[in-house]
């Protein structure tokens, strides 16, 4: 599903690398915890995996496409198969909750009736069907996080990435969020969850990818 070979990432030419010498592969249908202290490169790696940035060096393969060799026009179709739950949610403030969730389906060109039905269903799944006409600003942090999850999974992504999805949530909400992510895993998505919460892997055992100083410290 994802293969990195000697990947280095610099945000500017000549700058210190945010990631360096990364070399690992993740199987399709796997669930992986991405761990490490703040500044270890977790968010940079997730950005790389959802193709928001491209590697400075090395070979990156995502869902069978060699990104380092791919043309720019090939990337949008690939991005549409990747769902991302951002740490800062990134909900669009001028759209209501339902339209935020429906956004990936609109981008994919789905019909109006179908996309509204699917988005409504996903909001029901995350327990926010009654808030569908509210603007994001009217929701609590935990509710916004769940809307962000619904938006990330509404197009049934093959690869689901979550960046600190529980950082703004209390214990109960965190448990609920992780359960939703695990449900997506059971439905067949490859899931990678970045967290610095060491308790989560103990509670929900899965392979851990650990970064330190932009390098891979351990994988297993």
């Amino acid at each position: 599903m994802v293969r990195l070979e000697d990947i280095t990432l610099r945000y500017r030419p000549g700058a210190a690398p945010a990631l360096s010498g990364l070399d690992f592969a993740l199987e399709g249908g796997s669930f992986t915890w991405l761990m490490g202290p703040s500044g270890a490169g977790k968010s940079s790696l997730l950005k790389l995996l959802h193709l928001a940035i491209l590697p400075s060096e090395g070979r990156l393969n995502v869902m069978g496409t060699a990104i380092h060799a791919a043309g720019r026009k090939e990337l949008p179709a690939l991005r549409r198969r990747i769902g991302v739950v951002f740490q800062d949610f990134r909900l669009l403030p001028h759209l209501d909750v339902l339209e935020n969730v429906a956004l990936p389906l609109r981008i994919a060109g789905r019909g109006e009736q179908q996309l509204l039905a699917d988005a409504t269903e996903l909001l029901r799944w995350v327990g926010l069907a009654e808030r569908m006409k509210d603007r994001p600003e009217a929701l609590s942090g935990g509710e916004q996080q769940r809307v962000a999850l619904a938006r990330a999974v509404v197009a049934r992504p093959a690869l689901l990435l979550a960046d600190e999805p529980t950082s703004n949530l209390d214990a109960e909400q965190s448990r609920r969020m992780v359960n939703l992510l695990r449900q997506m895993h059971r439905l067949g998505s490859t899931v990678i969850v970045a967290t610095h919460n060491e308790a989560l892997p103990d509670e929900y055992p899965a392979p851990i990818l650990r970064l330190e100083g932009g390098r891979l410290a351990s994988h297993g």
Binding site: A52, K73, R79, R80, I82, L103, I107
Partner: peptide, 16 residues
């Protein structure tokens, strides 16, 4: 700017 980047990252094409 921020909205364009979000749409781009979700797979919206330049043409769209």
């Amino acid at each position: 700017h921020a909205t364009i980047v979000i749409l781009h990252d979700m797979g919206a094409t330049d043409s769209t």
